[in-house]
């Protein structure tokens, strides 16, 4: 799946290849594996075991307190044929992914561009914009969000200036998901920083040359900035999408772990968590997790396959 995008340039050991097979392996493959050694130790020592276990558990009834019991594909069958909450939570998460990811990325890129211009007070702005992301998802955030989006909250105070009487946004089923999307977008700091780092990597002489040729700012953005930024855009898009699919804490703290009102904020992983730790069905929860993995995996594979058409690496 990652074949094309990962072919990086000059293989370091190639020129030194000699007749001996061992020498060739040593010169070609060994450096790569040596650099990956810590990762391999972690992967085989700590990561892969629990992953395989969770895959096995997805074919069992496992109540956490007694031994798991093999049930074949039952969990998966139930999920697709007899579980309205599965579909409801899938819908919520899909909505979240579709709206929060592009908004967050656009915001992050826009602000990063703005901040990349040399100006007075730049470090201050950068820090101010990153501050919300520092907060993470804490109890304090849950309380804050209520102060803003409740009936007598800040948003409605503002709307009342225009004579609009707003509902209690955070607790009305039609709008509650949007308050969580806004929370996600509000914490756009991480992709912004990554965009900034990406912008910094673009060699300035390219702009100088373009500017001498009389290229407008917009043309510079389209012809230079965007193409050279594509590896970073690609990274941010993939990562933010994966994270959005797995998003758990915002909904957990804001709805107190219930997914209410009327399951309108029942994120997929929140449902998974309820099944696992609330209702003691770790087997079913594991099956839910693997369905999510398959979904996200397909999305990622698709992104990598299409990336060769729009992601430009320097090679």
């Amino acid at each position: 799946m990652t074949a094309r995008s990962l072919e990086s340039g000059a293989p370091l050991g190639e020129r030194a290849a000699t007749s001996s097979l061992w020498t060739r392996i040593w010169q070609n493959d060994a450096p790569g594996y040596l650099f990956l050694l810590p990762w391999f130790i972690g992967f085989f020592g700590l990561t892969i075991g629990p992953i395989i276990t969770s895959f096995y558990l997805s074919f069992t009834d496992f109540d956490l307190l007694t031994s798991p019991e093999w049930v074949g594909a039952n969990n998966y069958i139930r999920m697709f044929t007899n579980d309205p909450k599965f579909w409801a939570s899938m819908r919520v998460t899909m909505m979240f992914v579709i709206f929060s990811v592009p908004l967050k990325l656009a915001f992050a890129l826009g602000v990063a561009m703005l901040l990349n211009r040399g100006m007075r007070g730049l470090p201050l702005y950068r820090a101010l914009f990153y501050l919300p992301s520092l907060l993470g998802a804490s109890v304090a955030i849950a309380i804050l969000w209520r102060q803003i989006f409740a009936r007598d909250g800040l948003v409605n105070d503002f709307l009342s200036i225009f004579g609009i009487v707003g509902p209690s946004w955070i607790s009305t089923p039609q709008y509650s998901l949007w308050t969580i999307i806004i929370l996600a977008v509000w914490q756009f700091g991480s992709p912004m920083i990554i965009f900034l780092a990406g912008l910094r990597q673009i060699p300035q002489d390219m702009y100088e040359a373009a500017s001498l040729d009389g290229a407008s700012r917009w043309r510079q953005f389209i012809k230079i900035t965007l193409p050279l930024l594509t590896p970073v855009v690609f990274f941010n898009a993939i990562i933010q999408t994966i994270e959005a699919f797995k998003s758990f804490t915002p909904a957990f703290i804001i709805s107190g772990g219930t997914g209410n009102p009327i399951n309108s904020t029942l994120f997929y992983t929140l449902y998974l968590y309820q099944e696992a730790f609330g209702f003691f069905r770790m087997g079913y929860a594991s099956a839910l997790a693997w369905v999510l993995l398959a979904l996200v995996g397909m999305f990622t594979a698709f992104s990598f396959l299409t990336s060769k058409y729009w992601v430009h690496y320097d090679e």
């Binding site: 990086s8 650099f35 797995k246 997790a289």
Partner: peptide, 21 residues
Amino acid sequence: RLNFKFKNFWFAMMLMTLMLP
């Protein structure tokens, strides 16, 4: 920056660890 056998496979494995809740 390096080339070695099964690189893409290991990279895919690495990404997979990101996707499981």
